[in-house]
Design a protein around this nucleic acid. Structure first.
Length: 274
DNA sequence: AAACTGAGCAACCGCTATGGG
DNA sequence: ACCCATAGCGGTTGCTCAGTT
């Protein structure tokens, strides 16, 4: 279908986002929402293509992103959901609030898949795989280190030093119901352009900071808003969606509701991994 | 201490789906 | 009904850096 060339390369920046760009993007979306991704970069004064902005926002800047390592429960859920849904990362992500499809995809390919493969091999052929040169055992240390780094660097909205760093996840727990009325930023498409003027987006020279209330508000917004699309939403997950998903949805339904023997009942309880 | 290796992750690419005119 | 623009998704790539040699 008539697909506009993504980023008419001319003049558009690519590669890693700078803190400055992050600030601009967050500021713009927070103030005006993201009704039109394609137009957004121009409006915000970013030399990026809309696609890139969208990706950056969804995968990294969104305030409701949960950072840090995946908990065991989350990993188990991913494994189970992957068995059920296959590589439908967005569908899986929809059931793991705060996690993005990209992140889940990465975790799957880097950890979970590998973790499963050996056990599957052992199942099929009781042959211990050739000992890996590295990674003796135990939790990947690098992961934790990175998670820390990530948490530090992540909060897009604060200064690099990240005085506010105590992770978004933490604030999630204290999020008050205060501002649930805000139209949710992730679902926050066009219309709901959040009216968060009170946020302190000060001039570039000053520390860029979003008022705590923003995070509380956003984080406390009904998860339904965030996960509307996929999170156990009957119509969507069970047939209201694309017709091509019919089979999948059917089995999902069976899986979720239990097919009688209740074998997978556990999974049925994982609507939200918070 | 330096070089090397590879895990981890952010970002990109290209395709399909969807909605509006 | 058709065409086009945009959003969204999944696969892939390439960079960074911790861990190993």
């Amino acid at each position: 279908m008539g697909r506009a060339p993504c980023c008419e390369k001319m003049g558009l920046k690519r590669g890693p986002w700078t803190a400055e760009e992050d600030k601009i993007l967050v500021a713009h979306i927070t103030s005006f929402g993201h009704g039109n991704w394609r137009a957004l970069p121009k409006q915000a004064g970013l030399l990026r293509c809309g696609k890139s902005c969208r990706l950056r926002w969804i995968n990294y800047l969104r305030p409701d992103i949960k950072r840090g390592n995946f908990s065991d429960e989350e990993e188990q859920s991913i494994i189970q959901l992957h068995q059920l849904l296959g590589n439908r990362w967005s569908a899986i992500a929809a059931r793991l609030p705060g996690r993005t499809d990209n992140e889940i995809k990465n975790v799957w390919h880097t950890h979970l898949k590998k973790r499963l493969e050996p056990s599957e091999q052992e199942q099929h052929e009781q042959q211990p795989g050739a000992p890996k040169k590295r990674k003796p055992s135990g939790p990947p240390r690098r992961r934790e280190a990175k998670a820390a780094r990530k948490a530090a660097a992540a909060a897009p909205v604060s200064s690099p030093e990240r005085s506010v760093s105590s992770t978004v996840t933490e604030s999630t727990s204290v999020a008050s119901g205060a501002a649930a009325e805000h139209g949710g930023s992730s679902g926050n498409s066009a219309g709901s352009s959040v009216s968060v003027k009170e946020e302190s987006f000060t001039s570039e020279s000053e520390e860029f900071q979003i008022d705590e209330s923003f995070w509380s508000e956003t984080l406390s917004m009904p998860l339904d808003d965030i996960n509307d699309v996929g999170l156990m939403e009957p119509q969507d997950a069970f047939g209201g969606g694309k017709s091509s998903d019919g089979d999948m949805d059917y089995w999902l339904k069976v899986f979720m509701e239990g097919d009688g023997d209740g074998g997978d009942a556990d999974v049925l309880d994982l609507p939200q991994m918070i």
